[in-house]
Simulated scan of single mutants.
Amino acid sequence: MNKTDAVTALAALAQDSRLAIFRLLVQHAPAGLTVGLIGEQLELPAPTLSFHLKTLTHAGLVSTVQEGRFVRCHAEMARINALVGFLTDNCCGGRPEICQPRNAGSAALPLGRSS
């Protein structure tokens, strides 16, 4: 992944509804969800959902597959993993073994504070 791709992906995720859509699709990976189910679960009207899915698809974070009269959406896990890799490349001064993510349950420190 290059810098332009990373900026495009981050920009696509930098909006509440798109982030919610992507997170929902990650939760339902690898099977994905139909557009109708995404709209129902997130209470998004069809035109709004379509707009957000187009942005996520353009960024390569979501793919769609026609299944009869339904469209199924999938989170592109390889793409998000590439983004995470790009963001953490050269982490911790070249010592990746000390750059493990915190447990999801641990409290984050305020910005500018160290442990």
Rank of each mutant, 00 (worst) to 15 (best):
D89M: 08
T57S: 14
V84F: 13
V65S: 12
I80W: 03
T34L: 04
G32N: 00
L61N: 00
V71I: 15
A6Y: 04
N2D: 15
P101N: 05
A6C: 13
L44H: 00
D89V: 11
I98P: 01
R72C: 05
H52A: 04
T57Q: 09
D16E: 13
D16Q: 09
A75F: 04
L13T: 05
T4D: 11
L49M: 03
K3P: 05
G112Y: 12
G36H: 02
M77Y: 05
Q27P: 02
S50F: 09
A46Y: 04
R69F: 14
G68F: 06
I98W: 06
L53Q: 00
A31C: 08
R23H: 15
S63V: 13
P47F: 06
H58A: 15
L13Q: 08
A82W: 04
T64Y: 02
L109K: 12
L83V: 13
G68P: 04
G32M: 07
R79D: 06
H58P: 01
T57D: 01
H28E: 10
A46W: 02
E97F: 07
L49A: 00
G112R: 08
E97M: 07
T4R: 12
M77H: 07
L10Q: 14
N81K: 12
V84W: 10
Q41T: 01
G94T: 06
L87S: 10
P45H: 00
N90P: 03
L33D: 03
S114M: 15
L109E: 15
E97C: 05
Q15K: 13
L83I: 06
A31F: 02
R79N: 10
D89A: 11
T88A: 08
N81D: 15
L87I: 14
D89G: 10
V84M: 11
A31N: 07
A104E: 15
H28D: 09
A59R: 03
Q15W: 07
L56I: 01
I98A: 04
C73L: 00
L56Y: 01
E43W: 01
L44W: 01
V26W: 03
N90C: 07
E40K: 03
H74F: 15
A6G: 12
P96A: 09
T55L: 09
S115N: 07
A6Q: 11
P96M: 09
F51E: 06
S106K: 05
S63H: 12
I38P: 02
R95L: 15
L33H: 03
H28R: 11
A20I: 00
R18L: 09
